[in-house]
């Protein structure tokens, strides 16, 4: 293992900003794993830290296939994480909306360019992603539909679901999208949680990455998830929405199978506790996403079901 500073900039009053990478093996650039890009992605840095510890051990045991190089970047944004801010401290911009970056541009464009320059030549790229909707997800691998995506590869993580995301305009500046445009097989790996530690979720994420690495010929005698992944198009997910705003009282969890018409949650009046709305399952299916917010706005997606 070699530890290397991949990108750095000096600050006026803070310590130097550094993006650090850990490289295992030598040779063909087989896989790059990126942990947190935003300052609240604690679960992502935690999962990456376990991955680095595991790969270090596997390398010592000679289990990394010769000729394969793996780069792991636990955090692209320690500055934001250290002050509990989600985005860049000075101007609140999101590094994950700056790819492929611009080395003569503004600060986060430069950071994105500096990182992208180091990660763009890898055959496979995994970002430990977080979702903008606060809540629980079923663990899954997501690929963006760019025309270059290879869904079959995503099944090699052995997670229950592979989701194909239909690209929206704002996706085009993300790491995942640009990786694919630069011919890297890019995957976003979602376990559970973002701003808190979930040990089980991290273990699941770690095993999924090891499974992928084994199946792609990077690890000898590695761990393999034998689960058959189900491919889901994001447009086929069925949304159950809160029509009213108020206190969100939830009765089901992710992964649970629900019947059409089953009560999923109630919206309660925050003043007198009256039920303002009962949210029923619109179809029979599996709960893929469930909001975990105590209060909800109206017209808000609070569940997504796989029919």
């Amino acid at each position: 293992m070699t530890k290397e500073i991949l990108y750095k900039i000096d600050s006026l009053y803070r310590d130097q900003f550094r993006v650090t990478g850990y490289t295992f093996g030598e040779g063909e650039k087989a896989l790059c794993v990126v942990g947190s890009i935003r300052g609240n992605e604690i679960q992502q840095i935690y999962t990456c830290a376990h991955l680095i510890r595991t790969l270090k051990k596997l390398e010592e045991e000679g289990k990394i296939v010769p000729g394969k190089q793996i780069l792991v970047i636990p955090s692209c944004n320690p500055y934001s994480m250290n002050i509990e801010k989600r985005f860049w401290p000075t101007d609140n911009t999101d590094i994950n909306r700056m790819f492929p970056g611009y080395d003569m541009g503004e600060t986060t464009q430069r950071i994105a360019a500096g990182i992208f320059d180091r990660v763009k030549d890898y055959a496979n790229g995994i970002q430990l992603a977080s979702f903008y909707m606060p809540g629980e997800f079923m663990p899954h691998v997501r690929m963006m539909q760019t025309g270059f995506e290879n869904i079959e590869l995503a099944k090699e993580f052995g997670l229950p679901y592979v989701v194909r995301r239909h690209t929206r305009p704002y996706d085009t500046t993300t790491l995942n999208y640009n990786w694919q445009i630069w011919e890297t097989n890019a995957f976003s790996l979602y376990t559970t949680g973002t701003d808190h530690i979930d040990r089980e979720g991290a273990q699941l994420g770690l095993e999924a990455i090891l499974s992928f690495m084994t199946r792609r010929g990077m690890l000898k005698d590695g761990f393999v998830n034998r689960l058959e992944s189900q491919v889901v198009e994001d447009v086929d997910l069925v949304t159950a929405r809160a029509g009213k705003a108020g206190i969100f009282e939830r009765y089901v969890r992710t992964g649970q199978t629900v019947q059409k018409g089953q009560l999923l949650a109630c919206i309660l009046s925050p003043y007198d506790g009256e039920a303002l709305e009962e949210i029923m399952a619109p179809v029979k299916g599996t709960v893929f996403f469930a909001s975990d917010q105590p209060l909800t706005y109206s017209s808000t997606a609070v569940f997504k079901l796989i029919p």
């Binding site: 009213k244 705003a245 108020g246 206190i247 925050p270 003043y271 209060l295 909800t296 706005y297 109206s298």
Partner: peptide, 8 residues
């Protein structure tokens, strides 16, 4: 127009 959670 959309309702906010608490009386607004």
């Amino acid at each position: 127009a959309v309702e906010l959670p608490v009386d607004e």
